[in-house]
Every structure is written in structure tokens, then in C-alpha cells.
């Protein structure tokens, strides 16, 4: 009897997963088998392996990698300093707050800031460097993407660092390890799970970014996300759009498998 009630409580979750996780993925896989005229074919997959889409895929990975790397470089020290501050939670909220704002709004703000007559260029010419083209460059794209994703990197790392038993650090120092050695051999290995889940939380959405490729990079950066958007909204070639999506799903699955989802799970259990 008790067993059956428990099953009943599981029903909504099972329905949810079937409807919103399994069904969409199945639909994407299904659509990817149709060409633009609605005929059943595998041609879309062949098309993916042409230079246009392959180089697009390589670039998407490269940009996602850069975004993740820079986010990590900024986020780790930030998270570390956060754990040392007196009002940790307050600072954390302040850092996370920008992510409550709408993405589009933030992107438009950056268009204004990076523009030829924007404050950044005004500052550059005031210090004698002169006006530069900032908007519509790869630099601005990566900068804005890092800005957008950084809270997702800081949070898990902060949690991991916060959990770290300070006596372990004290012990390492007592036993003669230098500050760098302590970090390299004690602190970093113990927080690697936070780093991993942070990287996943950044890399995976970064791989299919699309809106800011147009708004901030002026389509100078073309990712698979751009191609999906175009196929669904303009060409109405849902087959090809789905095929790219299938490849992204596979790529993300591989990344999850490679970075070991087991350790990440522990993070979230906290």
C-alpha cells in the first residue's frame, strides 16, 4: 500500500520528465530526419559534415572554451575572496543580482557602452589611447558573454570553497607547504567539483549562444546557435536546425560524461 502511494507521488515528476525532457529530445531527433520538403532522409547529417557547418562547430567550441576559461580565471579568485569576507551572503547576492536582469536589456546596455560615442571610448580618448572599435569585435563578444555567465561560475566554486575545512589549510601550512603549494595540492583539488560544475554551467549554454552574436558581435561571430535560429525562424528548414541541435545534445552529453557528472551531483546535494 505504502509502496503504491509513493508511486503516486512520483507520477507528476515522471509526467514532467516524459513531457519536457524526453519528448522534446525525441522530437528533435525525429525532425532531424526530414529535409526541407518533408521527405525522410539522412541528408541533413551529411550536410552537417560539410566545411561550412564543421568550421562553425569548431568555432562554437573555441568561443565556448574561451568564455569558460576567462569566466574561471575571474570567478575562482572572486569566490576565494568572497569566502574571506565578513558578510559573505551579502556579497554573493550582490554578485548574483545582475543575473536577475533580462539578458536583452544587458546586451543593449553594452551596445551603448561600447559604441563609438559611448563611455568606454570617451575614457579611452581621455587617457590618450584614442577611439577604438570595440562593439562588433570578438573581444566585446567574449567580454559580454563572460559578464553574463560569471555568476554561474562563481556560485558552485563559492560553495565548494565555503565547505572546505579550514583546518586542512592550516595543517598544510603547519607542515611547511608554501601558499602556492597549499593552493595547488590542497585547496584546488578539494574544490575541483565546484570548478567542474561551474565549467559545465558555463560551457554548455555558451556553446549555443545566439542573440549576443548579433547584438554585440554584429554577426562577426557565427555559432551553431545562430544557424539553428536561422533555420527555424527564416528558412523554416526545421530538419537542418534539429540536426544541429542533435549534435549539440550529443556534444553536451560527451562533456558531461568527460567531466564526470558523479562529483557534480555531490555539489548540488548540499
Amino acid at each position: 500500500m505504502q509502496y503504491r502511494t509513493r508511486n503516486m507521488y512520483l507520477m507528476p515528476y515522471a509526467a514532467w520528465i516524459a513531457l519536457f525532457v524526453i519528448a522534446p529530445i525525441a522530437l528533435i531527433a525525429y525532425y532531424s530526419m526530414f529535409d526541407i520538403d518533408g521527405a525522410l532522409t539522412l541528408a541533413n547529417y551529411r550536410r552537417f559534415f560539410t566545411p561550412v557547418y564543421l568550421s562553425m562547430a569548431v568555432r562554437s567550441f573555441w568561443y565556448a572554451f574561451l568564455i569558460t576559461m576567462f569566466s574561471l580565471l575571474v570567478a575562482y579568485p572572486t569566490a576565494y575572496l568572497l569566502t574571506k569576507t565578513r558578510h559573505k551572503q551579502l556579497w554573493l547576492v550582490l554578485i548574483i543580482m545582475p543575473s536577475w536582469m533580462n539578458l536583452l536589456l544587458k546586451a543593449y546596455a553594452f551596445i551603448g557602452m561600447f559604441g563609438t560615442y559611448g563611455p568606454v571610448n570617451a575614457l579611452l580618448s581621455a587617457v590618450g589611447i584614442g577611439t577604438r572599435q570595440i562593439l562588433f569585435t570578438e573581444f566585446s563578444f567574449i567580454f559580454v558573454a563572460v559578464y553574463i555567465f560569471i555568476p554561474f561560475m562563481i556560485l558552485p566554486i563559492f560553495n565548494a570553497l565555503d565547505e572546505l575545512n579550514p583546518s586542512l589549510v592550516a595543517a598544510a601550512r603547519d607542515l611547511g607547504a608554501s601558499g602556492w603549494d597549499t593552493f595547488r595540492r590542497v585547496v584546488f583539488p578539494l574544490t575541483i567539483s565546484g570548478v567542474k560544475s561551474g565549467c559545465r554551467a558555463v560551457f554548455i549554454p555558451a556553446l549555443s549562444l545566439f542573440m549576443i552574436t548579433r547584438l554585440i558581435a554584429g554577426n562577426r561571430v557565427i555559432t551553431l546557435g545562430t544557424a539553428i535560429e536561422q533555420h527555424f525562424l527564416v528558412t523554416q528548414d526545421w530538419g537542418m536546425g534539429s540536426t544541429i541541435a542533435v549534435f549539440l545534445v550529443i556534444a553536451m552529453g560527451l562533456i558531461m560524461a568527460l567531466t564526470g557528472s558523479g562529483e557534480g551531483g555531490k555539489q548540488h546535494a548540499r
Partner: peptide, 13 residues
């Protein structure tokens, strides 16, 4: 659709 698809492919390139 087919021709529009071709235009889009060229545009993407």
C-alpha cells in the same frame, strides 16, 4: 522553401 533555403545557405557562408 527550397530556394529560400539556398539563399540562406549562401548568406550563412
Amino acid at each position: 522553401k527550397r530556394m529560400l533555403g539556398y539563399y540562406n545557405e549562401l548568406f550563412l557562408e
